[in-house]
Amino acid sequence: MSEVTNSDYIAHSDQFRCGFIAIVGRPNVGKSTLMNHLIGQKISITSKKAQTTRHKVNGIYTDDEAQLIFVDTPGFQTYHRNALNDRLNQNVTEAVAGVDVIVFVVEALRFSDADREVLQKLPRHIPVVLVINKADKAKAKDAEVMQSFINEVKEEFAFAKVQIVSAKHGLGIAQLVHTLKPMLPVGIPLYPADMVTDKSSRFLAMEIVREKLFRYLGEELPYAMNVEVEQFEEDEGIYRIYIAVLVDKDSQKGILIGKNGDKLKKISTEARLDMEKLFETKVFLKVWVKVKSGWADDIRFLRELGL
């Protein structure tokens, strides 16, 4: 993070609050979409496939009353077991250990054994807010059915608060922020008021490419892939970004590239457009594929990737 001065921070009263909030839940309940709406900007990748988030991403929301620092975690993974997912599950456990509040996200009218498994891993000394997401999918159900579902989940854990939202449509987001603020400790802001993430442009570029892989490839293939930025240059008026996609097998390389290179071109083009919007500058993006057999079970290599 670049050096900042006191003038970069908002003025705050003695009652200003600042703290860390972990967003946890089983895969594919909408955690990343929720965080993107909470901070008002897309910094965490989203996909209909489970387990798109592999790194903890700090999203920062600041107003005149508080600074909420959100930690977006991978979904606890019980399928696709390998060294990668064991490391991801460990990352989640470590992330929740040092926060002030935990947001536990479940899907409306669906509470599974996978949800229960995540809940059992949460510490009991940190307040947990139950957030029921995808409420728009349950709109045809009456209030009595929803209340019955809430009561069922509340029997599993002593939640501090309950909030119903639709992260996809941005519904209930302001109310959730209002609920979380008084649960944070009084303290000065840790980041400048206009800062929305502590992640670098290099990291965000990598995540954007990975999102496109999850969106446009088959159900299993993205789980055997990872992305690394090999070069990132910030020239005046343009970013030059070179990204390698790692796959396990030669056959996977062909699937990713597609007929006449069409699939990789589509992924690269959409990623470049997203980067230009996020970075507010022109982007030259080069994406290619490298075969590294067994990377997802290579603990040393995972450490090198920061996983």
Rank of each mutant, 00 (worst) to 15 (best):
E3Y: 08
V4R: 09
T5F: 11
S7M: 08
Y9N: 06
I10F: 04
R17I: 15
R17E: 12
C18F: 07
C18N: 12
A22M: 01
A22E: 05
G25C: 04
R26T: 06
G30T: 06
L34V: 08
M35A: 05
N36Y: 07
H37A: 10
H37R: 15
L38T: 08
I39F: 07
I43Y: 09
I43Q: 01
S44K: 03
S44R: 07
S44F: 07
I45E: 01
S47V: 00
K49A: 00
T52Q: 01
T53I: 10
G59K: 12
G59E: 10
I60M: 12
I60E: 10
Q67Y: 02
L68Q: 15
F70E: 06
V71R: 01
T73W: 14
P74K: 14
T78I: 12
T78Q: 09
N82H: 10
N82Q: 09
N82E: 08
A83C: 05
A83F: 02
D86S: 11
L88E: 13
N91T: 15
V92P: 05
T93H: 11
V96H: 11
G98V: 14
V101M: 06
V105F: 10
V105L: 15
F111A: 00
F111Q: 03
D113G: 03
A114N: 03
V118R: 02
L119T: 04
L122G: 12
R124N: 11
H125K: 02
V128F: 00
V129C: 08
A135N: 07
D136L: 03
K137V: 01
A138V: 01
A138N: 03
A138S: 10
K139G: 01
A140R: 10
A140Y: 07
I150M: 04
I150T: 09
V153H: 01
F159T: 06
V162D: 06
V162M: 05
V165F: 03
V165C: 08
G170L: 11
L171C: 02
L171Y: 05
I173G: 03
I173A: 09
V177W: 05
V177L: 14
V177G: 03
T179N: 10
M183H: 13
L184W: 12
L184P: 11
Y191M: 12
M195C: 14
K199A: 15
S201Q: 15
F203L: 05
L204V: 07
A205E: 02
A205H: 13
V209H: 00
K212A: 04
K212G: 05
L213V: 01
F214P: 05
E219P: 00
Y223D: 03
N226W: 02
V229C: 11
E230D: 13
E230I: 08
F232S: 04
F232G: 00
F232K: 08
E233Y: 07
E234I: 11
E236N: 04
I241G: 03
I243L: 06
A244K: 14
V245G: 14
K249Q: 12
K249R: 15
S251M: 02
S251R: 13
I255L: 11
K259V: 05
K259A: 08
N260T: 06
K263Q: 12
K263S: 10
K265I: 06
K266W: 00
R272L: 00
R272Y: 00
M275I: 09
M275S: 07
K277H: 10
K277L: 05
T281R: 09
K282Y: 07
L285H: 09
W288D: 14
V289N: 07
S293K: 14
G294I: 14
W295K: 00
D297Q: 03
F301Y: 12
F301P: 09
L305T: 00
